[in-house]
Each structure stands twice: as structure tokens, then as C-alpha cells.
Amino acid sequence: MTAPTPSAPLFDRLVIIGPGLIGSSILRRAHENRAIARELVASDIDAGVCARVRELGIADRVEADPARAVVDADCVILCVPVGAIGAVAAQVVPAMKHGAILSEVGSTKVSVITGVLPALASRPDIAFVPSHPMAGTEYSGPDAGFPSLFENRWCLLTPPEGTPPDAVARITALWQAMGAHIRTMTAEHHDRVCAIVSHLPHLLAFTICGTADDLAGETRSEVLDFAASGFRDFTRIAASDPTMWRDIFLNNREALLEMLDRFMADAHAMAKAIREGDDTVIVNRITRGRAIRRTLIENRQA
């Protein structure tokens, strides 16, 4: 693939498979900024999603068949649940043109790369650049997206060894055009980082809301009636898509379980401090939490 001229878009044809929150946000940003792609194509197995994307006008063309959608595309981004990425890659890779770039936006990377590589075994001409934009909301579907979703957020790239530098540079440029900051790391490191900063918090939110829901009678009613901001924050996270998070938990189980074990040890230590009236431990933990919050605000990640 030849480098674009200064006046040419980054990609001639960009294809989004799965225009949900992330996919439709990419389309919206690229629709606003035509320096990203001359033509935007969207595809989804759900006919209702395809119809809604047409109504929203965020893609130049919509195809129900993903293999047909990727024909002559310069870049294809898979925006489907991580458990489906390998199967979708097997569908689209044979139809991709020589020299095209395949990317995806999954929240786990070891499992995704393992799932995609078999489809690429007979297509060494296709460059694979996994990416993970660290942005989102509790909403899903094509109506949930918005063009500023990735602004000042991190996008983590985990290109396998031997990935052509030009392909990595193009995907980097794509996410920079989305407004994101870029960090490159190994897939293994990515999964451990995301286990603590994203996957474990979601697991805890789902669990806490389940505990509240299990409370009987009047107590449960009062929990829901008098919910303070802390509990409301958990319910916002817990409103996330069940299929997506099921796949994330199962596909990053080793790193997630490691972080869960560490959290449980810390929770037991905090319980012991409360039981024994050890205010030093309690204040230290709260102070560390406040410091992390201040850092997030300073880094414009909160």
C-alpha cells in the first residue's frame, strides 16, 4: 500500500464490521473528517443495525455480508465482541485485497490474536494491527456512538512481532485522527493492565449490584430508593452490554482472576483494619485512592 499524498485521505476505503458504540463512533469521526477515509463502509449481521446505520447516514455504504463489505478495502476494523472476532476474521480475511490492513478494537488481546492468526496463516500479505481504544459508555448500538468518544483517551496497540511498520503507522495515524493518545505494548502486558483498570471494576460493579438485588423485601427497596452517588456509579458500569462483558471475562480469565485474588487479599486486610479499629490502615487506603483520583483528573482521564 503506497503512502498517501498530503492531500489524499489516510485510507481510500475504511470498513467497520459491527457499528455499535465503538464502531459507530469511528464512523462518525471519520464522516466529519474526510482526511481519514474517502469511503466509509459499515457491515453487521443484524438487519436492524444495518437499517439504523443507513438512517443515521454515518456510512457511505452498508452491507449485510461482511465478506462483500471488505472487498477492495484498505483497512478493515472488527468492532464485534471479543469472542466473535476470530470467527469474523475467518469470514473476511479471504475477501480482503492484497496489502490491506486488518485491525480490531477488542478489550482482550492474547485471546484475540490467537483467534485471528489462523485466518491470516494463508494471507501473509495482510497486516494485522490489534488496537484497544480505552473509551466507552454503558450504552451500545449504532445510536450510542459520538465523534468525540476517543478525544484525549488512550488507544493501546499490540501489533504481533513482524507487523509491517507502515501498517502500525497508519493505524496510529487513524487513532490520532480520532483524538486518541497512543501507547504500544505486548498483548500479555495489555491484558494484565486492562484486568485491573477495566475488567475488575466491571466485575465488582456487576457483583455489587447483584448483592443489592438479592437483598430481601424492604431493605432492597430502600437500597434502590436511597441509592447515593457511589452506588449509582456502580449501576452505571453494571448497565454495560452483558454479551460483551461475558466474552471479556472469559477471554481474559487468567489475568482477571490474578487481579481478583489480589483485590480480595486487600479487601480482607481492609476488613481486618475496620474490625480492629486500625485507623492508620484505613486512612492510608483512602488517601491512596484520593491520590489516584487526582492523578486521573490531572491526566484528563476522569
Results as ranks from 00 to 15, higher is better:
Gln176Tyr: 11
Met178Asn: 14
Gly179Tyr: 10
Ala180His: 08
Arg183Gln: 15
Arg183Ile: 14
Thr184Cys: 15
Thr184Ile: 15
Glu188Trp: 09
His189Lys: 15
Asp191Val: 13
Arg192Met: 14
Ala195Ile: 12
Ser198Arg: 11
Ser198Val: 08
Leu200Asn: 08
Pro201Leu: 06
Pro201His: 02
Pro201Lys: 01
His202Glu: 05
Leu204Cys: 00
Ala205Cys: 03
Phe206Pro: 02
Phe206Met: 11
Phe206Trp: 11
Ile208Lys: 01
Asp213Arg: 12
Asp213Ser: 10
Asp213Ala: 12
Leu215Ser: 09
Glu218Val: 03
Glu222Arg: 07
Leu224Pro: 00
Ser229Met: 01
Ser229Gln: 05
Ser229Asp: 04
Gly230His: 03
Arg232Cys: 06
Arg232Tyr: 04
Phe234Leu: 05
Arg236Pro: 01
Ile237Asn: 02
Ser240Trp: 03
Asp241Asn: 13
Trp245Asn: 05
Trp245Asp: 05
Asp247Ala: 10
Phe249Trp: 11
Asn252Ile: 03
Asn252Leu: 09
Ala255Val: 01
Ala255Asp: 01
Leu256Ile: 12
Met259Lys: 15
Leu260Gln: 11
Phe263Lys: 02
Met264His: 09
Ala269Gln: 10
Ala269Tyr: 06
Met270Ala: 07
Ala271Thr: 10
Ile274Ser: 05
Arg275Ile: 05
Arg275Trp: 08
Arg275Val: 05
Arg275Cys: 06
Asp278His: 11
Thr280Lys: 13
Asn284Val: 02
Arg285Ala: 14
Arg288Asp: 14
Ile292Pro: 00
Arg294Met: 03
Arg294Tyr: 03
Thr295Asp: 10
Thr295Ala: 09
Thr295Tyr: 11
Leu296Asn: 04
